[in-house]
């Protein structure tokens, strides 16, 4: 369990109040300890549910969520950043073709999973954004991780109510990014660029009925970094009937 500083301070305050109660009443020592333990457990669970990665990212509070009214995919599993360098087509392609961890292009991690890259353990975090975009700068800074010259892997699972043909994945990213749908690379956008809605579009593709895995690698040079993604239908209107989850449906 990862608790942020605010949560820890809140728990310390609760314990302090419990001790005050112990000293000022005739309660037996066992009772306050039990109460404190319960409070601690409750507060920790609440803190986990409300875990924040900055002003716009939280830990998902339910299993699945519909795409936003504008079709944006707002739930993602994101791996803590990996150090890389370069935003040109060739540098980005070389970065995403480097094997950092096993099954890099097929794994569907769980929240809290760790991968070892060199001597460093990096953690996958489930996040939900309140905006159309996922702010990776907030994400990395909240975890005290680097935000420049880094690569973020992100995965989400999109559940489609029926098989859909002729749809396109539409993405934007700061900066470069490469995207896969159900294991197929479908888009790459390169260079030092800002996130623009529907900046890059895939060719027309098919979404299966049920689960579809969307994966991306976003590479930042310096400064702000974020991404956004949605699917467009055959007439380029956002698909809003999709369900988005960070867990594979059972």
């Amino acid at each position: 369990m990862n608790l942020d500083r605010t949560t820890i301070q809140a728990l310390e305050s609760i314990l302090k109040r419990v001790r005050i109660i112990m000293r000022s009443t005739s309660f037996t020592p066992a009772l306050p300890v039990t109460v404190a333990t319960l409070l601690l457990t409750f507060a920790a669970a609440a803190a986990a549910a409300a875990q924040s990665f900055g002003p716009t990212l939280t830990h998902p509070s339910s299993t699945a969520k519909s795409a936003s009214p504008d079709g944006f995919l707002q739930r993602w599993l994101i791996l803590e950043p990996i150090r890389v360098n370069g935003l040109t087509d060739s540098a980005v392609q070389a970065a995403v073709r480097t094997d950092y961890f096993p099954n890099q292009l097929s794994v569907i991690p769980q929240d809290g999973d760790k991968v070892a890259i060199g001597n460093t353990n990096l953690i996958w975090h489930a996040v939900e954004t309140t905006n159309y975009n996922v702010n990776l700068f907030h994400f990395a800074r909240a975890l005290h991780k680097p935000t420049s010259d880094v690569l973020f892997w992100a995965v989400t699972i999109v559940t489609c109510p029926e098989e859909m043909h002729g749809v396109r994945l539409a993405i934007g990213s700061n900066a470069a990014s490469v995207w896969w749908v159900n294991g197929q690379e479908v888009i790459g956008i390169y260079g030092d660029r800002q996130t623009v809605i529907d900046d890059g579009l895939s060719k027309r593709l098919m979404l299966k009925k049920g689960s579809n895995v969307v994966r991306c690698a976003v590479i930042n040079g310096g400064g702000a970094t974020d991404f956004c993604a949605r699917f467009l239908d055959q007439v380029d209107k956002p698909l809003t009937t999709l369900s988005v989850s960070v867990e594979e449906p059972r």
């Binding site: 396109r168 900046d199 579009l201």
Partner: peptide
């Protein structure tokens, strides 16, 4: 032009 960086036929 269906996106800022993509061209297709429609």
């Amino acid at each position: 032009a269906v996106g800022s960086s993509y061209a297709t036929l429609a």
